[in-house]
Design a protein around this nucleic acid. Structure first.
Lengths: 336, 336
DNA sequence: TCCGTTTGGATAATCGTTAACCCTACCAAA
DNA sequence: TTTGGTAGGGTTAACGATTATCCAAACGGA
């Protein structure tokens, strides 16, 4: 059985409370007994029971991080950034991945609440207008911050990249590189993909270029999706000469399709991804992409959350949109 | 204040214990009161306080996962596999990443113990012969399983890939492809790198080839390290015609050096990595690599741990070495 | 010498649940 | 009528800490 404060107290002949005070450096304790207690604690290799402490202090120093999927490097980076930001404050991370299943997500959030996390950071996949999960969090008054994927209709903190700006940035870059027929391999039916699409459209309009519905291909987030989408585009009468892709995996899939078709990048088709996935600069043709500042997202979300946890009363919800950054590589670079 | 069992008990006019029994489906309760309790619980949106429960049951249903770094896709996959394996059993994951710093690792492990995790899965970076951290875990009798990196001198469960087999597999493959001067870009000074080196040497000896100390270049785990190492090799009188790399990032760095030098893969230099990193089949030259069965590691480690958590008495430590699998791609493929 | 103030610590109550017993009907068999 | 079993619940005491309150001894000044 693990050592408890009672064990120390008995050995040193003081009360448990005295031990507790020594260990927390609180209250008035004589130097003599302090030393005795500390020595005995070290001898016995005492470790606080945080569960017991949490029960009475109502603080677990634990933050729940709810992610769509671990494996994705984007969320891996988020987790790292969050972990590094909160650790100095004594917090730990209870992470759960719901594999893009909204029901699993809700049950995981409930579970984390039951575990009395002090706060939550969520990259949610709840369907539109389904706010029950969030209502439950709010009822508990547990502070939470949404990341990456905004949830419309919810008044909550949000930290994410400016997706419309990503769409504009990517498309404008293709325009600047001289592309005339610019297509978009769009992502799944979620807000984030729509915003990137809007950015794409806005950039075209701004440049007085026509919107061609055939140039917007629906899809998913994976490289197979990009592969299929690109093959579809290449079969059309007027294949595009520039493609802005929902994300890097999609772009990588598209790249495979382009190369397989015997075309060259960027002369025949220029390609822009988004996300700046690891190794996207080591592909057969290094991919121009848009960095979404993953670390900043995790960092700022953590800080926002820590503020709210520390605050006496609930603060106003705050939204932070991080401006993306374009990284030009060979997939769009002009030949010299 | 969150709803407690006491709230329900008062409303339904029974004792707290009765509520507890209903909620756990234990003890003898009449159908009538059961329904009353359940209804009221639902109405109030009651959520168990797991902290309180854990205090008395001495079970947190939480597993500590201690990893060198989140960002690395390998550990991301591990985390995913572990999470998926333990979730059905009601366990959650308290993950901490120690950024390859042994001291942070030790303090994180202590912290997880203090949080009363039911078990630990650790990919350790403790220096050789430094077993104090593990002793503390053992003293607490908290079951734990080591993964990926074995710790010599410690009698504990271990699950990992067979690194010597990786070394042999990769090297033998190069030999079979006709390479005569096979170098090795070895990793950092840890057991896992040494085992791969041993496998490399063993394969050469088995094929009656001479060991050339100049062909073994020390390094790290990153692509810069591979880049530098490969440049070093290329500067020698007799550059190698085949290189077995510690891992994929190193191989990717090496590939950059080779291409920059104007050489071609695999004709001039054949390259084998290890780890089967995502997208390593989408590089400028798709990389032959050795898959280390990441999912299996996470899955088997979790199962081993769950067994030990469930067992009444401590079971014998068990070691599981997973046989690796070679994936041939263009970086070693013979031209057709 | 007496009273007030520190000093250093003890006691009691609490956090929300569960474990281990105990109790009281009620019913059936002896 | 007595015995005894069972159904359905209540009581009490943990679990390992913290918070709030209280108390004795020592000390200091008039």
């Amino acid at each position: 059985m693990p050592v408890t404060m009672l064990d120390i107290a008995r050995d040193v002949n003081v009360s448990v409370v005295t031990v507790s005070k020594v260990l927390r450096n609180q209250g008035r304790i004589s130097e003599a007994t302090r030393k005795l207690v500390l020595r005995r604690a070290r001898e016995l290799n005492y470790q606080m029971n945080w569960v017991a402490r949490s029960l009475v202090t109502r603080r677990t120093y634990t933050i729940g991080l709810v992610l769509p999927e671990f494996a994705h490097p984007f969320f891996g980076e988020i987790a790292r950034a969050v972990g590094q930001t909160v650790r100095p404050h004594g917090y730990h991370l209870l992470i759960s991945s719901f594999e893009e299943d909204p029901e699993v997500e809700a049950s995981e959030v409930d579970s984390l609440l039951a575990r009395q996390v002090d706060g939550l950071i969520i990259a949610s996949a709840q369907p539109l207008r389904q706010l029950a999960m969030f209502r439950r969090v709010q009822q508990r008054k547990t502070p939470y911050v949404l990341i990456d994927r905004p949830v419309p209709g919810l008044s909550a903190c949000f930290v994410g990249v400016d997706n419309a700006a990503i769409g504009m940035l990517g498309t404008e870059h293709l325009i600047k590189r001289g592309c005339r027929r610019i297509a978009h391999l769009r992502g799944p039916e979620v807000g984030i993909a729509e915003q990137r699409l809007e950015g794409y459209q806005k950039a075209l309009l701004k440049a007085d270029m026509r919107l061609n519905a055939d140039y917007v291909v629906p899809g998913g987030r994976g490289d197979e999706s990009g592969y299929e989408g690109m093959r579809h585009l290449l079969r059309s009468n007027q294949p595009p000469d520039g493609v802005f892709c929902f994300n890097d995996p999609v772009a990588i899939g598209a790249m495979r399709a382009i190369l397989e078709a015997g075309l060259r990048l960027p002369c025949d088709v220029a390609l822009v991804g988004a996300g700046n996935v690891h190794y996207s600069d080591m592909l057969s043709v290094p991919l121009t992409t848009i960095d979404q500042r993953t670390c900043r997202i995790g960092e700022l979300a953590s800080k926002l959350l820590l503020d709210r946890i520390g605050a006496k009363r609930t603060l106003q919800p705050k939204t932070i949109l991080i401006p993306p950054k374009l990284l030009e590589r060979d997939s769009t670079r002009r030949h010299s």
